[in-house]
Structure formats: C-alpha cells, structure tokens
Amino acid sequence: MTPGADPTAYAPQTVPSPGETLKETLEVLGIGQADLARRTGLSTKHINQVVQGTAPLSPETALLLERATGVPAGMWNALEATWRTQVVQEQEERDLAGQTGWLDHFPLDALVDRHVLPDRTTTVANLRRLLDFFAVATPRVAEGLWDGNRTAFRRSTVTTRDEYATVTWLRLAERDAHDIKCAPYDRNDLTALLPRLRDLTLDEPQTWFTELPRLCAQAGVAVVFVPALPRTSISGATRWLSPDKVMVALSDRFKRDDQFWFSVFHEIAHVLLHGKRLTFLDDSDKLTSSDASVDASEAEANDFAALTLIPAQHAAAYRQLQARPTPFTRIEAFAASAGIATGIVVGRLQHDGSLPWSQGHRYKRPVTFP
C-alpha cells in the first residue's frame, strides 16, 4: 500500500481470474479445453465457461482440476474466492458511488471530531466508514432499520429536530456503552444505589463523570456521556443492549446540574420501571410531569426523578420554601437539610413557578463533559 493511502478505499485486486489462470495453465501443459473436459469428465462447454469467467469454479471442479493439472485444489478455490470478491467489490463501488449524497444528511463535523470520519468529503470511502459505524450494509438497509426501530422508540416528544443527528448521537452512545464492563443487571442493586447517587450531587462535577459510571456498572448499567449534537434536542436515552446490560446515555444539552441530575434519575426510572424492549429518547424542551402531552412512562419517570431528588420526607419543608423562597439563604438551608445541591433546589423552584427563571442561576453548577 502506498504510504498515506486510505486503507478503507477499494483498490482492485491484482490476482487474475481463475479462468485466466486456467487458460495459461493449459497452454503451459499443452492441454486443450476439449482434452481437459475428457480428463475431468466435465463438458467442454462448462470448461469454456470457467475459462471465460461466466461459470463459477466450484470446490468440486477445483478437485477435478487438481487431478488433471497438478495444481492444488486449494489454489483454485482461493483464486475463485478472491476473484468473486473483487467482482462484488467493483459492483459495490459502482452502487455506492451513486449514494454518497446520503452523507449530507449527517452531522459530519461531529463525526470528524469523534474520529468516525477523517474529513467531511462525500466520498465512497467515507460512505463505507459511515456504514461501518452504524454496522449496516447499505444506506437503504439503514433507513429501513431506523424506520422499524421507530416503533420500538418511546419519546418525550412526537418529533425531533433532525432524525439523522439523533441516530448518530444514539449510535455514538451505544459504541461507548459497549466498551464499559458491567456486572449483570440487578434491579435490587440499582435501587440500593439510589441514595449514593443522590449524594453525588454534592460532589464536584468532575467527580460525577468517574463515579456515576463506576457505581452504576456494578448494577449492570453502562452510563455514558455524549455531548449534544447540533440539530438535536436529546437530554438522555435508555436502551437495553442485552438482557443483562442497559445503557443510560446523557447529553450536556442543558449545561447545568439541576437538569443533568434530573435526567440521570429520569433515565434510571426507565430502567427500573419500564420494559426492556423499548428505547427511551428524552428530547423535550423541559422535563415536566405536568404536560398532558407526555405519555404515561415519561410522566412516571419525571415523578420518580422529582421524588428521588426531593423525597417525600422533605415535602412539607419544600412547600414552606415554595411559599417564601427568598432570601436565598432559605434555599441554601433547605438544600443542606435535604442533603442535595442548592442548584437542584433552585431549578425545582423555578420549574414549579415559585422562583423566576431569571433568579438563582449562580447556584447552578455548569456541566461540561470531559
């Protein structure tokens, strides 16, 4: 290979067709096609078709040729396999050359940044890389697969900003999740882990990105952090990778700890409460259980997250805080007594309409993925 050449680009094989090699072998041996037919018991027509490349050279024919020519059957089989692969690759090259426009649907900058593609060019080589990334054979197969998957997706909104960016984000998350080693999923272990996860809200954000995946992996949950892509609105997703391993993927879409931790427990709710056959994509503008358009599973996940962050034993104190949230020392005191980050309480008060959205943002810590 030429230094610097693209290893995925198709380059025609230099090996001759088995028919060409057979023709040359017969010339060297001084055997005609009719004579070879008599020696092998095959018809002259069939020998000629093999020489012309219009008939495949089968393993049975290869064995007969070994006896008649002395050339091992394994070599004839290898020549046939290599030649037929080359023919298929040449046909695929022609087919894919007319489909490179499919690349234009995808967030190419993000794919380059994640080293899926080397550049933004709409070439056959990049189309092959994209198909490898999605583990599909052709663009048509991919589209059909995604159409079928939509029936297994549960979403917090009916539509999304860009389906291609969405499937790209989800695939990036799946690849990262597959690399995480997890214990077999155990519902009791995950439930027992909830208080420890809630305690993490008090730690520094850089701790979250190591401790959250480490702890959840012990219960069979692969937690991954995938930065939000342009033209998507996903805050999180839940997908079972196998009966014993579930992926919880989180984006940095909202950039603040209150929404981040709500998304964490919202996705965990899907794991604990809902079926293994569905993929949950949470792509609403604001996670809320009061929106009548949210389906039952999303509303249930919202309620679970809200109650995990501010449990029932703190409900009375929280109602008092709602009635009089300022001065902010009151919010800080409630957060300390509840054992939760102040920014999460601020976000909850804003969501419940007890605090203007313009106030309290300094208590919310920024979320920036490593």
Rank of each mutant, 00 (worst) to 15 (best):
T191F: 08
A222P: 04
D252H: 11
A222Y: 02
L250P: 02
F262E: 11
S233H: 13
F209D: 03
P213M: 06
Y185N: 03
G220Y: 05
C216K: 05
D244H: 09
E174F: 03
V167M: 14
D258P: 05
A217P: 01
E174M: 11
Y185Q: 01
L241F: 05
G236A: 14
D176T: 02
T232Y: 09
D252P: 09
V221H: 07
V226I: 15
L197R: 04
T201I: 09
L193F: 01
D203G: 12
L193Y: 02
A217M: 07
L241H: 02
D257K: 10
S251T: 15
R187S: 12
S263T: 14
P195A: 06
N188K: 13
I234A: 10
G220V: 03
D186R: 12
F254T: 04
L193H: 02
Q206E: 14
T238A: 12
A219K: 07
V221I: 08
F225P: 00
G220I: 02
A217H: 02
D176G: 01
T168S: 14
L202R: 14
R187T: 08
D258M: 08
A165Y: 08
A173G: 13
L172V: 07
D257Y: 04
R253L: 15
T201V: 08
L250S: 07
A177D: 07
R198P: 04
V224S: 07
D252S: 12
D199F: 13
Y185W: 08
A228E: 13
L200R: 03
Y164F: 15
I180N: 05
L194A: 05
R256E: 09
P230W: 05
D244I: 08
Q218D: 10
F225D: 03
R256C: 06
P213K: 06
R239A: 13
L241K: 01
A177Q: 08
K245N: 05
T232V: 11
A183L: 09
D189K: 15
D257S: 10
T238F: 11
Y185P: 04
C182M: 06
P205L: 09
L172P: 06
T168R: 12
T168N: 11
S233V: 10
